Simulated assay, not measured.
Amino acid sequence: MKFLLFTATLLAFTGAVHAESIYCSFTEPFLTVTYNSETNKITVTSPDEGSAETTGHVTYQKGGILKITADGITQYLEVNLTKEGSDGMSDFVYPFEGSISNQLYGGCETDTLKKQQPKP
């Protein structure tokens, strides 16, 4: 269900109805990756390295995977729209699992689908 809601939201981007951002949190190392669909920008923030921004390219993969790449960068972000994620530190349950080049796993949320406290 959340996959369908997220897909519908992304499809609305092309009609300029509503912009949506994806926010992914990772630990070991600590990173935050944000993709803004309105500006088509990826921002990577690290407490040690600061932040960097570049233009992103979004493709849809089989199995509900959203892949975000950037020119000249070999690393890529994949958001699995069918799996819940975790930031590796908190008890929050993220609506989506994120991975950087299938090596670093974390949790992702959007403007409309937010992380939640675990259910008791």
Rank of each mutant, 00 (worst) to 15 (best):
E20K: 03
S46I: 08
T43H: 02
A16H: 11
T7C: 04
A52H: 07
G15I: 09
G88A: 08
V44T: 14
D71P: 12
I68D: 00
I65E: 05
L5S: 13
S51A: 09
K115Q: 09
D111F: 03
V17T: 13
E49F: 12
L77E: 00
K62M: 07
Y60G: 07
N80I: 04
A70P: 00
G88M: 07
T43E: 11
T7E: 12
A70W: 01
F6W: 08
F30C: 00
D87I: 02
T112E: 07
S86D: 12
G88P: 04
T55F: 08
F96R: 00
G50K: 11
T43Y: 00
Y76P: 00
G106N: 03
K62T: 07
A52V: 15
K83D: 08
S99E: 11
T27L: 04
T55R: 09
I68R: 02
N40C: 11
T27Q: 11
D91R: 11
E53G: 05
I42G: 01
L11F: 11
F96A: 05
K41I: 08
K41R: 10
V58Y: 06
E53R: 09
S99G: 03
F13K: 06
D71V: 12
T54L: 03
T54F: 04
L81N: 00
T54C: 11
A19N: 10
T45P: 00
I65G: 00
L77M: 09
D91L: 10
A19R: 13
Y105C: 00
Q116L: 12
V79D: 01
K2S: 10
T59L: 08
V58T: 10
T55S: 11
D91E: 15
A8R: 09
D111M: 01
D71S: 07
Y105V: 03
